[in-house]
Computed example of a mutant assay.
Amino acid sequence: MNAILMALPGAEHFASHLRGHLGCDAGELLLHRFPDGETCPQMTPAVEGRDLILVGAMDRPDHKIMALYLSACVARELGARSVGLVAPYLPYMRQDAVFAPGQGVTARHFARLLSGCCDWMVTVDPHLHRFHSLSEIYTMRTEVVPAAPEISRWIAANVERPVLVGPDEESGQWVAQVAAGVGCPYTVLRKVRSGDREVAVSLPPADVLAGRTPVLVDDIVSTAHTMIAAVEQLKAAGCPPPVCVGVHALFADAAYAELEAAGAGRIVTCDTVCHVSNDIGMSATLAQAVARMLA
């Protein structure tokens, strides 16, 4: 493979695992910060005529975007044959519509920025709600890697007699896929949100939960309030402490501690966002998608 892999700040650990699966060369990306706060990327070895794979940790993205943009543009200036982005977590997907006067669809603008500096991108389970695929807003080649198979394998290996619980209606189809991979039943709760941090969910059906260990599954865990509300309902139904599984471990502010305090038996996430709860690796599956992009 005539490719060089470089990690943007914060993605070094994930990039190391990814490179191990790809067998490509390791490069070094130096981001020189001038006294006025501007950034100048420097790459070694030379990228001319080679495929460059940039690996970015894109949670809390605003201070990382310029480094990514400039690095991709400089690589093209230096003659890289192609520039690809591995973004295990893809931000700016929630604002997929105008929700209040004076706002815009920032998902489209972020997509235009990345599509203008990269040739391709692979990511894990972006928040696709009003957009059905990334191709609706991204003009570069993209591939979405599902986390469901890896989550199913983890649950099957670590939880006895599981029953999967989706914390809200939006999680229904996704939770069904994970349950099918495990070969266990599932149920989906109904969510009622009265504010950014005020969430209630419906009571789970007792007959589905009887004699099983509940496993709450969601894609993005940010404030964790939906998952906390579901944990409280499961406790009220007399269930054992639930296992909480998330794909992207954003955990804003004290969300992780609050979920623990609510009574979660165990909290597990994929390693798309670096966090102490990471226990489900996605680098091997992402490496397969990268190989397809470079084929």
Rank of each mutant, 00 (worst) to 15 (best):
Leu250Met: 12
Glu28Asn: 10
Val188Ser: 12
Leu209Ala: 05
Ala257Tyr: 02
Ala107Phe: 09
Met293Asn: 03
Met293Tyr: 04
Thr285Trp: 01
Arg50Ser: 11
Lys64Arg: 14
Phe110Ile: 06
Val192Arg: 14
Tyr186Gly: 01
Glu28Ala: 10
Gln233Tyr: 01
Ala97Asn: 13
Val55Asp: 07
Cys274Tyr: 03
Gly238Asp: 10
Ala176Met: 11
Arg112Val: 07
Thr272Val: 08
Val273Arg: 03
Pro214Met: 11
Val221Phe: 13
Gly263His: 03
Met293Trp: 09
Val163Ser: 09
Asp219Tyr: 12
Val276Asp: 06
Ser135Gln: 15
Cys274Phe: 05
Gly102Arg: 14
Ala57Phe: 06
Asp196His: 13
Lys191Ile: 01
Pro9Cys: 04
Ser133Tyr: 00
Leu114Gln: 04
Gly172Arg: 15
Ser115Asp: 02
His32Asn: 04
Ile220His: 05
Leu189Glu: 10
Val221Leu: 15
Ser283Gln: 06
Glu258Pro: 00
Val276Lys: 06
Cys40Arg: 14
Arg153Cys: 08
His225Val: 13
Ser171Cys: 13
Ala180Cys: 04
Leu18Val: 14
Ile151Pro: 00
Val47Leu: 14
Asp25Tyr: 01
Val290Ile: 08
Gln173Ala: 15
Val243Asp: 08
Met1Gln: 12
Ile4Asn: 11
Val105Arg: 13
Cys270Gly: 08
Pro214Thr: 10
Val231Tyr: 03
Thr223Tyr: 08
Val201Tyr: 11
Arg212Leu: 09
Leu30Lys: 13
Val105Ser: 12
Trp174Ser: 14
Asp125Val: 01
